[in-house]
Simulated scan of single mutants.
Amino acid sequence: MIWLQALGWFGSALLVVSLLQAGMLRLRWLNLTASVILVGYNAALGVWPMVVMNAAVCIIDLVHIRALSKREAGARAFRAPGVAESPTGEYLAKRNAPRL
């Protein structure tokens, strides 16, 4: 039974860590992993409301992971080869600067 408690603590800790992530895709993957662990933990204990809630979170995470993955794949498809990405838009700023 100690391993079951350890699994529950690990799942809960992973859930908290997932919420500290800045990147949405990483947050969703960690949250999904934690929710799957917590589904198993709560099912083993027979806490069915928590099983249903965590199963719903799993479905929500999967939907968001799919949408985020499609968005990232689309963004990669439109990147210009040989042009470095710049979060500040330096490439566009240099390109559109007035010529004297």
Rank of each mutant, 00 (worst) to 15 (best):
V39F: 01
V39Y: 01
V39M: 04
V39T: 05
V39R: 01
G40A: 04
G40Q: 02
Y41R: 00
Y41T: 01
Y41P: 02
N42H: 11
A43P: 04
A43V: 02
A43R: 06
A44H: 05
A44I: 02
A44P: 03
L45Y: 07
L45R: 12
G46H: 08
G46A: 06
V47H: 11
V47Y: 12
W48Y: 05
P49A: 07
M50P: 00
M50T: 04
M50E: 08
V51M: 07
V51H: 03
V52T: 10
V52K: 06
V52F: 09
M53I: 02
N54V: 08
N54G: 06
N54H: 13
A55N: 03
A56W: 00
A56D: 03
V57M: 01
C58S: 05
C58R: 01
I60G: 06
I60F: 10
D61A: 10
D61Q: 09
D61C: 15
D61V: 00
L62W: 00
V63D: 12
V63R: 12
V63F: 07
H64E: 14
I65E: 01
R66E: 09
R66I: 10
R66H: 11
A67D: 10
A67Y: 04
A67T: 09
A67I: 03
L68E: 13
L68Q: 11
L68D: 09
K70W: 11
K70F: 14
R71W: 08
R71M: 15
E72S: 09
E72T: 01
A73Q: 13
A73F: 03
A73K: 11
A73C: 07
A73P: 05
G74K: 09
G74H: 14
A75K: 13
A75S: 13
R76F: 12
R76E: 15
R76N: 12
A77I: 03
A77L: 14
F78M: 15
F78T: 12
R79M: 14
R79S: 12
R79C: 13
R79V: 09
A80V: 15
A80Y: 04
P81F: 02
G82D: 08
G82T: 05
G82H: 05
G82W: 03
V83A: 04
V83H: 04
V83P: 00
A84S: 10
A84F: 05
E85G: 10
E85K: 00
E85F: 07
S86G: 14
P87K: 10
P87T: 10
T88H: 05
T88C: 02
G89T: 05
G89D: 06
E90T: 14
E90W: 12
Y91K: 11
L92I: 14
L92D: 12
L92S: 12
A93F: 12
A93Q: 13
K94Y: 10
K94V: 12
R95F: 15
R95E: 11
R95G: 00
R95K: 13
N96T: 12
N96K: 08
